[in-house]
């Protein structure tokens, strides 16, 4: 039961086996099994308050598991609120994890600038977060997670704080970027559409204490997907049904 056992490089960035966790007397996670392969995007959906965030913290090493094992590569976290440092410009915010890992200022800035240029945000490199729009800040926050070259990214409702139009735009942007630079991704969301548009697999959790009630594969390249695709539609219906069943079961079996 540790979160810092490192699997060999090239192995699955995340393997969680029968993970349980209680907060005080409250059981939050109940025997979760979860695996993310290299470059695989796994979307985690569940009713609100089901323990998604606790699972994410376990994976990021912010909390220990009470039982079971979490074997995870060091993860880069992208929180729901961008949490950019207001005193750093976009470039230095992207470079922050590199600086903390001990990279020199010049090299870290160079790599951050490269990333910003790659997504056409180069001209905002010297703008502070308060000079950027919400969508722009969220992009910078994602680049910050990407900057580390960590094999596992944890995205905690990354678009939850954005308006609908910006969210759609950013979803397409993220899909493209993840196809270009594949990483193992654990995407926590309560938006079924977002899950099936971005995930290779969608894992449905039950209400607290969370158990995995179903796993659904979504076919095809992320960047080509559209809500109207038959496979996406089918996956969305399946995930939504599974989610409703899980919630109904949590209420004591009343559908």
């Amino acid at each position: 039961m540790s979160s810092d056992d490192l699997p060999a490089s090239g192995a699955a960035p995340l393997v969680a086996r029968s993970v349980s966790r209680s907060l005080g007397a409250l059981p939050v996670l109940d025997g979760i099994d979860l695996e993310i392969g290299p470059g695989e995007v796994v979307a985690l959906v569940g009713p609100s308050g089901c323990g998604k965030s606790t699972l994410l913290e376990l994976v990021c090493g912010l909390q220990p598991a009470d039982a079971g094992t979490v074997t995870a590569r060091p993860a880069a976290l992208m929180p729901q609120r961008d949490l950019l440092l207001p005193w750093l410009d976009a470039r230095d915010n992207v470079a922050l994890p590199l600086r903390i890992a001990g990279t020199g200022r010049k090299e870290a800035r160079g790599r951050a600038q490269e990333l910003l240029d790659h997504v056409d945000l180069g001209r905002f490199a010297r703008s502070r977060p308060d000079q950027l729009s919400g969508g722009m800040r969220q992009r910078v926050a994602f680049l910050r997670a990407l900057a580390t070259d960590r094999e596992l990214l944890c995205l905690d409702e990354p678009f939850g704080a954005l308006d609908a139009i910006t969210r759609e735009e950013l979803r397409a942007w993220l899909a493209r970027l993840l196809d270009e630079r594949p990483r193992g991704v654990l995407l926590v969301t309560h938006d079924v559409e977002e899950a099936v548009l971005l995930g290779d697999r969608v894992v449905v959790l039950s209400p607290r204490p969370a158990r995995v009630t179903g796993t659904f594969a979504v076919e095809g390249a992320r960047s080509g997907r559209d809500v109207a695709d038959p496979s996406v539609l089918a996956a969305r219906t399946a995930v939504r049904d599974a989610l409703h069943d899980a919630i109904a079961a949590g209420r004591g079996g009343i559908p």
Binding site: C60, G61, L62, P74, A75, A76, L77, P79, R81, L83, L85, L96, P97, I100, A101, T148, C154
Partner: peptide, 14 residues
């Protein structure tokens, strides 16, 4: 200071 910030930096190994 936003308590989320120290947590985020801890995931970076700060």
């Amino acid at each position: 200071v936003d308590p989320e910030l120290p947590r985020l930096l801890r995931t970076m190994g700060a």
